[in-house]
Design a binder for these strands. Structure first.
Length: 261
DNA sequence: ATGGCTGATAGGATCAGA
């Protein structure tokens, strides 16, 4: 089973990219972030025609997450969860479902703006709530995969220019400590289980020719629970869609799991 | 140098992203 994550920065604008990439990559389960559309505008019929069923939590203008599942995979409808249980939030940033015996979570972590701001405080609150919920979720579902735009670059090697970024939003010690807390739950950064090219990133600013200069960050991740991590056979960042016309600023990360699909 | 792009909402500038 191939699972992937992609912040598409508007599913309306990127629908054809998603459909083309699904076909090209042969992905079975695609977690999406930043749909930027209300539920009534979700392009379910177009994705169905491409061979995928969709679960999503959208809202107007901002945020919004979804999980696309290839036809034929068994999804347990009764286990779908939208947003973090117990964490009141109008922002739609998390959806979870169960495919076979694999629990899949698609998450759009808050950006945070800058350390010290209200939005940064919200980011830390959200991360705390997510951490506590995931601790329980891992007990319920040993095979747990957390995919998404984390808006955290865990280490300096995930940053094109660590000096310039030192202490900034997305790399600050507080955020990295939160990422480390997820690792302490037992999660494994699937990407780092394998040898990877130097300076592999998943996001590049639209401005200043950042992609051309590879001035990016690795902020989109796939974390796997202890029971699932050993079943992961490869992880790669696929830069191709970032080269397409009118791309998302993020590019997909894909993992091959040794799980029946 | 807080600029530089892009998308959504709106029907022009502003917010938000990272």
């Amino acid at each position: 089973m191939k699972i992937a994550t992609w912040n598409v920065n508007s599913l309306k604008v990127r629908l054809q990219h998603v459909i083309d990439w699904l076909k090209e990559s042969q992905t079975d389960v695609l977690c999406l972030q930043e749909l930027k559309l209300p539920n009534e505008k979700f392009p379910g019929a177009e994705l169905e025609a491409a061979g995928y069923r969709s679960w999503f939590a959208g809202q107007k203008t901002y945020n919004g997450v979804g999980i696309l599942v290839r036809d034929g995979l068994v999804v347990d409808e009764a286990t779908v969860v939208r947003n973090i249980p117990g964490f009141e939030d109008p922002q739609q940033r998390m959806i979870a479902t169960t495919i076979g015996d694999v629990r899949v979570v698609s998450a759009y972590f808050p950006n945070g703006q800058a350390p010290g701001t209200e939005k940064f405080a919200y980011k830390l609150d959200w991360l705390n709530a997510m951490h506590d919920w995931l601790a329980q979720e891992m007990q319920r579902y040993p095979k747990l995969a957390l995919l998404g735009d984390y808006n955290i670059a865990p280490e300096d090697r995930d940053v094109h220019d660590p000096k310039a970024w030192e202490g900034q939003n997305l790399v600050s010690p507080e955020e990295r400590a939160q990422f480390a807390r997820l690792i302490e739950l037992g999660f494994v950064d699937a990407f780092r289980q394998f040898e990877q090219p130097e300076k592999t990133f998943t996001w590049w600013d639209y401005r200043m020719f950042a992609f051309r200069r590879n001035a990016g960050l690795r902020i989109d991740h796939i974390l796997l629970s202890p029971a699932l991590a050993p079943l992961c056979k490869s992880v790669e960042v696929d830069k191709t869609p970032r080269k397409w016309e009118q791309p998302s600023d993020h590019t997909p990360v894909i993992a091959q799991l040794d799980v029946a699909s």
